[in-house]
């Protein structure tokens, strides 16, 4: 090792270099110029004829070789300050990642996936535009909208490869990437939601839901009109009483408004309530037809309408006293004939 002296010129030169690097984080400048004086002193001790270069040019060369960003013009203002601190943060994060082998390999792996992201963001953009016009189809697009997706994909890939980058394009890409990242999950959710059919299918399904699965008032409807009671007649056309009816699934058939829980009012003003039938088991059921009604009153304690004490059940008058009998052939037809 050559023993060398640090001349005032070298000190001034090193100060100039550090000043030219002042836009970088202080730690970075220290690391970059640590030992600079010693190196310079040694270099110039070896070759006394050497002239010190321009500190600015030297700093630029140092910066370029170290892979650091070129000096940004010192701007004032909140926006450029934010931009500067963003750049600094990115540099710091980049340094931290490179110093950690595990993180670095993860980042490298993700870097390999960049082309996939180029395609994804193109699809996202095409989907969003198509969705604006109502032409998205689940994850896909309607007809010629695929052409838009292909065009977007080409642009996206070219941008990703650093091509077609005019003035303002990098900023556009940055904004686009942020939008794409933010829109990714909502779009995926919407696309997944729509993947089992378009708007019409969904509307139809919800309509079916509304009629079939959303019973505001459980019970029977006939062409939209509530069926509040049922009158059964036997084969001879004679009115029957206490007929138990069940659905194809074995569920007790309940007429409109005769639910056993709370709303059992038979009359609009609730002056009467439906009277359930009584099974041998003691259970009260509302599928015994025709249903009877009983005079009712409001019970403050139970907070509901209850049958008046001592009131008798009344079976509403049947619509027909007698109906025509059912024709039954004497011989049972052979189904093989």
């Amino acid at each position: 090792m050559t023993t060398s002296t640090v001349t005032p010129e070298i000190v001034a030169f090193a100060q100039g270099v550090r000043a030219a690097l002042a836009d970088l984080p202080a730690e970075e400048v220290d690391d970059l110029t640590d030992g600079l004086e010693a190196d310079l002193a040694e270099a110039y001790a070896e070759d006394l004829q050497r002239e010190l270069p321009d500190p600015g040019a030297y700093a630029t060369e140092l910066r370029a070789a170290a892979g650091l960003p070129m000096r940004t013009k010192a701007k004032s203002g909140v926006l450029s300050g934010l931009a500067q601190s963003w750049t600094d943060t990115r540099t710091d994060v980049g340094v931290a990642i490179r110093r950690n082998p595990a993180l670095a390999s993860v980042v490298e792996f993700l870097g390999e996936l960049r082309p996939a992201w180029w395609i994804v963001r193109a699809w996202l953009a095409a989907w969003l535009v198509a969705a604006f016009f109502g032409n998205e189809r689940g994850y896909g697009l309607a007809g010629s909208w695929w052409l838009v997706a292909v065009v977007f994909a080409v642009i996206s890939v070219q941008w990703g490869r650093g091509r077609w980058q005019g003035k303002g394009v990098p900023a556009l890409i940055a904004i686009g990437n942020v939008v794409a990242v933010l829109a990714f999950l909502p779009v995926m959710a919407a696309a997944d939601d729509g993947s089992d059919g378009g708007d019409f299918d969904r509307g139809f399904a919800s309509g079916v839901d509304a009629t079939v699965n959303d019973p505001p008032q459980d019970g029977l409807l006939l062409r939209g009109q509530p069926v509040t009671n049922i009158f059964a007649y036997d084969a001879a056309g004679k009115a029957l009483r206490n007929v138990q009816l069940f659905t194809q699934e074995g569920k007790p058939l309940e007429a409109h408004g005769s639910r056993s829980d709370d709303n059992t009012c038979a009359a609009d003003d609730c002056s009467t309530v439906w009277q359930p039938g009584q099974l041998e088991t003691g259970q009260s059921v509302f599928n015994v037809f025709p249903l009877g009604t009983v005079a009712a009153e409001w019970d403050d304690e139970a907070q509901r309408t209850v049958p008046k004490q001592g009131a008798f059940s009344v079976v509403p008058k049947a619509p027909f006293l007698k109906v025509p009998g059912v024709f039954t052939p004497k011989k049972v037809a052979n189904s093989n004939d």
Binding site: L40, Y58, L62, R63, A64, A65, A66
Partner: peptide
Amino acid sequence: DASVYGTLR
């Protein structure tokens, strides 16, 4: 010189 220092860094 500066290129080498930068590269080392």
